[in-house]
């Protein structure tokens, strides 16, 4: 039997249909609700209310700061790990990498719950009572723990691809280890940093499961607001979602996330 041959165009139809129904249409719905009132008449009510409410703006700021701290911590932890793993001549380094990635195989809610219990246990020890009300600390801890693999993996894959001859050349030309690191490794691992940052920064602005469970729901990030408002005011909920979308878009654009493939090497997971 002759196999049917498809042109590229026809093969694209399922994807196009999928994108229309599950990406474009939902976005349009959000946009529609953000700019209508409860009678579905066009309205800037939610827009004005959002930007005149210091609480919502503050929450955006808080979420940004929490996400920023999470990202920086993840980067600080992940970079050395990825560097050592990529550069070392260890035979079984795959196992170490696996150990970092392994938690991702376990359900996220279970892991967060486990950390919650650990913190509760720690807080009941003598002299650790402060932990019970250190909600921001616990939230950031949980986020760093949760998103660390997303930082390590892209960094590791980019660093693996750095040609060893570049290091040799650098040493040949008399550069110290530090100079080599800052003038060869860091610039060449930039695409990995960028994709790691995007993958950590964006979800940690909205991952309110962590702030609810570890922050005891006393830490509120913007994702929680969206969920709360969708309980009784879709228009405000959509507006917040839209604002978040704009923030995400801007930060992706500024970090070069939309650059075409040629400049970004081996960074996608």
């Amino acid at each position: 039997m002759k196999l049917p041959r498809f042109s590229r165009k026809t093969l694209c139809i399922p994807y196009a249909v999928f994108l229309v129904f599950f990406v474009v249409l939902p976005m349009l719905v959000i946009f529609f609700y953000a700019f209508t009132d409860e009678n579905l008449h066009p309205s800037f009510g939610a827009f004005i209310k959002f930007f005149s409410d210091p609480t919502k703006l503050s929450t955006i700021v808080y979420s940004l700061v929490i996400a920023l701290i999470t990202t920086i911590l993840c980067l600080l932890i992940a970079y050395p790990v990825a560097y050592i793993l990529a550069r070392s001549k260890m035979k079984k380094k795959f196992i170490i990498l696996m150990l970092f990635v392994l938690p991702m195989w376990i359900n996220f809610v279970l892991r967060v719950n486990a950390i919650r219990e650990l913190f509760n246990l720690l807080a009941s020890l003598k002299g650790m009572g402060w932990l019970a009300s250190a909600n921001y600390f616990k939230t950031v801890f949980g986020m760093v723990y949760d998103f660390l693999p997303f930082m390590i993996l892209p960094l590791y894959t980019t660093m693996l691809k750095i040609d060893n001859s570049l290091y040799e050349a650098s040493a040949d030309l008399g550069a110290s280890a530090a100079t080599t690191f800052f003038r060869v490794t860091v610039p060449l691992s930039m695409p990995g940093i960028m994709s790691g940052v995007t993958m950590v920064f964006l979800p940690s602005m909205t991952n309110y499961v962590v702030s609810d469970m570890l922050g005891n729901a006393k830490v509120t990030i913007i994702g929680k607001f969206i969920s709360d408002y969708f309980g009784n005011d879709w228009h405000m909920g959509s507006m917040i979602a839209l604002v978040l979308l704009v923030v995400v878009f801007l930060s992706t654009w500024l970090s070069g996330g939309f650059k075409s493939e040629e400049n970004v090497r081996g960074t996608s997971l």
Binding site: D53, T55, K56, S58, T59, Y62, T220, F225, D228
Partner: peptide, 11 residues
């Protein structure tokens, strides 16, 4: 709702 969001979040 506004009250609740002021309570839950920091301003």
């Amino acid at each position: 709702n506004e009250l609740w969001s002021r309570i839950k979040a920091e301003t």
